[in-house]
């Protein structure tokens, strides 16, 4: 089965490089790419992707437009079956928490080894929750700081792709 992928990132260079990277994987098919949040929602309806790779800092340097977390919320409101994997150059507890609350399925980091992108997309398609190493570490400390402990969060070990993660789909 081929996984249909849509890329949302305001940096054309990242879109191109990701499309090129994913094009060499036989089981992955990039069906669309855009840098605009509204366009992404519309395209998702048209192209029916399985996984959307979403830039967290979608608005770019000039602070115009919608950020990737709001875009995720908007996209999932219309297409709840899509699995959105966040992709960002940075991660912080608040970004991770906001992404999880928006319904994101996973959180990957730009700058981590390139093979994590196809692996992460496949994991998300299988129903697992891909996380970058730093993201997983932050999730653990967030769990400890919250007093619920790693078990409550379901993060078992500092492994790259824990089977269970703090990401929860919104019940609505």
């Amino acid at each position: 089965m081929v996984i249909r992928i849509m890329l949302v990132d305001d940096h054309p260079l990242i879109r191109e490089a990701l499309a090129r990277l994913l094009s060499i994987e036989r089981d992955l098919d990039v069906v669309g790419a855009t840098g605009d949040a509204e366009e992404a929602v519309r395209m998702a309806g048209e192209l029916r992707p399985d996984v959307v790779v979403m830039d967290v800092d979608l608005h770019g340097a000039d602070l115009k437009g919608v950020d990737g977390i709001s875009a995720t919320r908007a996209l999932l409101a219309e297409h709840p079956a899509v699995k959105v994997v966040m992709l960002s150059a940075s991660c912080s507890p608040s970004l991770i928490r906001d992404s999880a609350e928006a319904g994101a399925w996973g959180y990957l980091l730009k700058g981590d080894p390139a093979d994590q992108i196809p692996e992460g997309i496949r994991a998300a398609a299988r129903g697992e929750h891909p996380m970058g190493v730093e993201v997983a570490r932050l999730c653990r400390t967030m769990g400890e700081a919250g007093g619920t402990g790693p078990d409550a969060l379901g993060v078992e070990a500092p492994s790259l792709w824990p089977r269970a993660t703090p990401f929860q789909r919104q019940t609505s």
Binding site: H11, L13, I14, A17, L21, A89, K110, G111, A114, I117
Partner: peptide
């Protein structure tokens, strides 16, 4: 950071 990430996906 964006451009070097792109480089990381290209190589």
């Amino acid at each position: 950071v964006q451009e070097l990430s792109g480089l990381g996906y290209t190589l």
